[in-house]
């Protein structure tokens, strides 16, 4: 079986690969890799459909202009790359309710979608508040030794561990 068709690679090999990608981003694009800005630009592009050019006057969208930039293509590429990887290993499968969720919170699809929607909204809001996510701060920022990123990533995991622990103890208790 070829290594491209393997279901799982060592997390260390994957991490080293992501590290090398970050070198390429700095050298070829003169920018750190990040994901959450693309979502903010998307929200601006959607708002433009309803409010027209007034969107460009919002101070936040003057900073992050609602347009397709390299990060936007990067995020679309992530979905494509994961589809290729899952397709090659035969791991591609449509799932609504993840197994672990079903085990603890039951098989209801509307409940899972509702919590994913609420969680997504909180995450999207927090990512813009902190000015970065697990990629932009968690990997690209920490590897540059940025003070903002080390502070943010510690907060990501402190709140994440507390929330996950409380959430799942509520279901098992």
């Amino acid at each position: 079986m070829s290594w491209l068709e393997m279901k799982e690679w060592s997390p260390y090999a994957v991490g080293a690969g992501i590290g090398v990608l970050s070198w390429l981003a700095f050298v070829l694009l003169d920018t750190p890799l990040g994901c959450s800005t693309a979502y903010a630009r998307t929200s601006g592009m959607i708002e433009r459909l309803f409010r027209g050019k007034k969107v460009y006057e919002k101070p936040y969208y003057r900073k992050f202009v609602p347009a397709i930039e390299w990060e936007w293509m990067f995020v679309v590429g992530i979905a494509a790359g994961a589809a290729i990887s899952a397709g090659l290993s035969g791991a591609f499968v449509w799932v609504v309710v993840p197994e672990f969720w079903a085990l603890h919170a039951g098989p209801s699809a509307p409940l899972r979608i509702a919590v994913a929607l609420a969680g997504g909204a909180i995450l999207g809001f927090g990512a813009r508040w902190a000015n970065g996510c697990t990629s932009g701060h968690g990997i690209s920022g920490t590897l540059q030794l940025a003070a903002s990123s080390w502070l943010a990533v510690v907060c990501f995991f402190v709140a994440g561990v507390l929330t996950a622990t409380l959430f799942f103890s509520a279901f098992s208790g």
Partner: peptide
């Protein structure tokens, strides 16, 4: 503060933006 808000959403969603 943004990091803590992100963490709450991260746990509920179970994915990050990437």
């Amino acid at each position: 503060i943004g990091g803590l808000i992100f963490g709450v959403g991260f746990a509920l969603l179970g994915y990050c933006p990437g």
